[in-house]
Design a protein around this nucleic acid. Structure first.
Lengths: 254, 254
DNA sequence: CTTGACCCTCACGTGACGTCATAGCCTATA
DNA sequence: TATAGGCTATGACGTCACGTGAGGGTCAAG
């Protein structure tokens, strides 16, 4: 594969502007492998992969200077980075969910007769940059590349039967939790099952406290998730959310 | 409610900096209702609501100038705007999913023996700003505030029984699609059922083509969604995705 | 009164490009 | 060969949304 791309071609391919590619060349972030006689920039496949990494890091709010340092570190590993991007992107989705929830709460509040039933600090849920930073720090400290790689490999390596077994385990845990709704979300019995539920989730991906908590919220916010859990037992989505939140705040944090 | 907040208090409450609040005051985007004798800024509850709107629009990549124009338009309606934010935030989640999918494809490609089995243009899926812009335009043109308001009201107004009925309809459609997997995802019979499925989704929120397409992808990417659909019939998640993509590309576009 | 936390205005700096000017290069067509 | 259209290059000022720091006043508690 010796194909080379001009700036226009790569700009179209990647969605960035020619100006951006000039800029990245100028600051040393992405230098084309080749320059023609007339100094035209020519990018090869390694350049394309590097640009992809730049764009992922950029998407995840790293500064260009930071990105350069990371990519130029001798210990940099593309696969590790991709796994890290994945985790952060999943968390971004949870962040979106938090904002959506704030929309809904604000709407409900505005539609009520008393406009200010929503507490002032609820207006900005999801916008809390400090909280987001704390989570990023948490992932950085707790993120175990080997564990992520392992769980990702688990998905790829699961046979149909294994996947079916894992799915059934999830159903069983969920049903058992439904049976214990009368015990209360924070009861030892329910919390024991939530622990199993969390372990079940981690069959698919590492799920730190904040993410697990956000997932519980997602169960109540996403109509299809809600429908799925209500099917086990009415009120189960909210119950799961409460139990998961408690578990995340009390068992998963340290 | 006559409580007033100082810049520090509001900064902490909202997650923005004091400097940002100064800046917004200076450019006229968010002027505090009161100034003390000593010119301290004092924000009231209307100010808090306006800041929330500013932050939503900012989150959704509107420029501050644009935000000011929108908010100061005599026809501006907070509820309409909140519904619009919601739609855009949901789409953002789909965008995240697209990026996650690109991560996975890149990983799979790097783990294979032939490093460049992944086509060059697949490297940047999810980064395509033009495509994102096209979608935003599509929503702007097709977004019907009354329809959004209606579907949102529908959720709030649904009784437990009605919600249960809607849920069951979803199950029935999904099961029927599962029964017709042998017909092919693009067959008239399946597409007829997909049409019902789309209508079912719109019980919850308006779902334009791109969003519907992204939802199909989500079914194959999110383990819990996949598990849910596999439960009806093995392979159903991917089948739904294919059928929904076809439907979005051929029936929902105009 | 002193101290520490908070408030104000002013203004230069920063990062990541956007925009434009100027000029050469490449390919196809008349 | 000339022309047109699309592409390339470098250089440099401008834009946006604050970050940072300077200098000075205010408020509450000890």
């Amino acid at each position: 594969m010796s194909k080379h791309y001009s700036v226009k071609q790569l700009a179209e391919l990647s969605g960035v502007t020619v100006r951006t590619l000039h800029h990245y060349d100028q600051i040393g972030l992405l230098k084309p492998t080749l320059r023609s006689e007339k100094k035209y920039r020519l990018y090869n496949s390694d350049d394309l992969l590097r640009l992809q990494q730049v764009l992922f890091f950029r998407e995840l709010d790293f500064s260009l200077n930071q990105i350069g340092e990371i990519l130029d570190d001798p210990g940099f590993d593309t696969k590790d980075a991709l796994l890290d991007h994945r985790t952060r992107l999943v968390h971004r989705q949870q962040h979106m969910t938090s904002l959506i929830r704030t929309v809904d709460k604000t709407l409900a509040s505005l539609e009520g007769e008393n406009h200010m039933t929503l507490k002032d600090n609820n207006l900005y849920e999801g916008f809390d940059q400090e909280k987001i930073d704390r989570w990023n720090k948490e992932v950085d400290e707790k993120y175990d590349p080997e564990k992520i790689a392992e769980s990702k490999s688990n998905i790829g390596k699961m046979s149909k039967d294994q996947f079916e077994d894992v799915r059934k385990q999830g159903d069983q845990v969920t049903a058992a939790i439904g049976d214990l709704m009368g015990k209360g979300a924070t009861s030892p019995e329910v919390q024991e099952l939530i622990k199993l539920h969390h372990a079940w989730i981690e069959n698919f991906y590492v799920c730190p406290a904040e993410m697990y908590k956000g997932l519980g919220q997602l169960y109540t916010e996403n109509p299809e998730f809600t429908a799925f859990y209500e099917k086990f037992k009415p009120g189960l989505a909210a119950f799961m959310c409460e139990a998961m939140t408690y578990h995340a705040d009390n068992m998963l944090r340290d």
